[in-house]
Design a protein around this nucleic acid. Structure first.
Lengths: 211, 211
DNA sequence: TGGTGTGAACAACTTCACAGCG
DNA sequence: CGCTGTGAAGTTGTTCACACCA
C-alpha cells in the first residue's frame, strides 16, 4: 500500500472494475487477467494494474486476479462494504425516478429521507415508503436519521440554497443533479450529474464531424 | 482560430460557461471578465481564457467579454444553434423522468421518438405527447424521424443490444444511462451518465476522510 | 490602467517496456 | 512461460507570468 495520492480518475475506474467483476462473478468466471478486465472497461491493461497497485498487490503473476477476492478488495477500498444513508431534496419527476431506481439499493445506497417545499407534496408517502418532509425539517431529520449523503434534485434556482442547508446540517458529501456548479466550503465534496453537459459534448462532436 | 486539437475537458467547460453566461444574461450583466466567469464555474481564470482562445479572440483587452456575444459564440461552437432530435429507449421510471425533463427542451434537445419492449406500454401515449413504439420499429422510425442522438435508459442487461440497434439504424451518438461501458465501433460516440459511479466517488472520499 | 491572449513552465495522468515472480 | 507490478518515458492538460493592446 503506497501513500502517494490517488488520481481521482483511478477511483472512477475502480467503480467500473467493480461493476465488471460483479458481472463476471455472475458468469462464474473465477480468474481474470488485466487485459480482459481492461477490455471490458474500455481502458488500457497497464492502467488497470497501476490503479490496483495503488492499493496493494492483489494479483498472481503469470495467472491474473481472483474475481471474487478482487471484487471484495475494491468494494472495501471504495467503502461499499457498508450501507450509505442518503437524503433526497426535490421530489419532481427526476426525484421520483431516483427514489425508485433499484441500482442504488443494490449497491448499498438508500434514501432514508426525502424533502420538498411544495405543501401539496409534504406529508404524502412515496410508493417506496418514505414520507415527504418539508424542507424546513431538514436539519432535524438529517441528524435524527444519520444521513451521510445529500442528493439535490431541485430546480437550478434552489440548488445552491439547498446545498447550504445540507452543509449546515452536517452533511459532507453531495450528489447534485441541478445544472450548475455548486460552491462548497473546503473539505466538502460535490459530484455533479449533468445530463445536458453530456449532450452538449455529443452535439459538439456531431457538429465537428459534419464539417 | 487554431487547429491544434481541443481537449475534451475544454468542451465540457464550454457547457459550464454557456450556463453561467445564460444566468448572467438574465441578470442583465453585459460584460464579464475571465476571473468572474472562472469563479462562477469553479475553474482557473487562465483556463477560461485558454479554452476560449482555441476558438477565436472573443474578448476585449482591459475590459472582458461581452456576455451576449460570448454566449452566442459558445453556442455556435457546441452546435447549440440548432435543435437536436433524440430517441429514447426504455420507458421506466428514469425514462419517464427524462422525457418530462424541461431542461432538455430549453437547450434545444427534443425527444421525438420513444421505445420500449413491454407490450403493455407499446401504443400508449406519454403526457408529453409521444406514442411509445415497440423497439422492433426502431430502425424505421429512426430514419423517418431523422434522429440525431440515441438515449439508452434500459436495464444494463439490454443496453449493449440497444446500442447496436441504434448504431445499425445510423445513429452516431449515444447518451447512456445504463451502468456499464458500451462498446462502440470507431467513429461513434457514447457519453455515460452514471449515478452510482459518482456515488462511489463520494463514498470513497467519506471513507478516506473518516480514517 | 486592467484584462486578454499565449508561450513557456509545470503538474498530472497514461502508456510503455521489462524485470521479477509464481 | 505468462502475467503482474513498476520505474521511466511519453502525453495531455493546467497554471504561470507577462507582453500586448483597448
Amino acid at each position: 500500500m503506497k501513500f502517494s495520492k490517488i488520481p481521482s480518475a483511478t477511483i472512477t475506474r475502480l467503480s467500473l472494475y467493480s461493476r465488471a467483476l460483479e458481472e463476471l462473478l455472475l458468469e462464474h468466471v473465477n480468474i481474470i487477467a488485466s487485459d480482459k478486465l481492461a477490455q471490458k472497461c474500455g481502458v488500457n491493461p497497464a492502467q488497470v494494474r497501476k490503479d490496483l497497485a495503488y492499493f496493494g498487490e492483489f494479483g498472481v503473476r503469470g495467472v491474473g486476479y481472483f474475481v471474487k477476492e478482487l471484487l471484495f478488495e475494491i468494494k472495501k477500498i471504495l467503502g461499499l462494504n457498508r450501507r450509505w444513508r442518503m437524503a433526497l431534496v426535490g421530489i419532481g419527476n427526476l426525484g421520483l425516478a431516483l427514489v425508485a431506481h433499484e441500482n442504488f439499493v443494490k449497491q448499498g445506497y438508500e434514501f432514508v429521507a426525502v424533502f420538498d417545499v411544495d405543501p401539496k407534496k409534504v406529508g404524502r408517502r412515496l410508493p417506496s415508503g418514505q414520507i415527504i418532509h418539508h424542507i424546513d425539517e431538514l436539519p432535524t431529520v438529517v441528524k435524527e436519521k444519520n444521513i451521510d449523503i445529500g442528493v439535490i434534485a431541485t430546480p437550478a434556482s434552489q440548488a445552491q440554497a439547498t446545498a447550504r442547508l445540507l452543509v449546515e446540517a452536517g452533511i459532507k458529501a453531495i450528489l447534485n443533479f441541478a445544472p450548475l456548479q455548486i460552491q462548497m466550503p473546503e473539505g466538502y465534496i460535490v459530484e455533479n450529474v449533468d445530463f445536458t453537459v453530456k449532450l452538449d459534448n455529443l452535439a459538439y462532436h456531431l457538429t465537428m464531424e459534419a464539417v
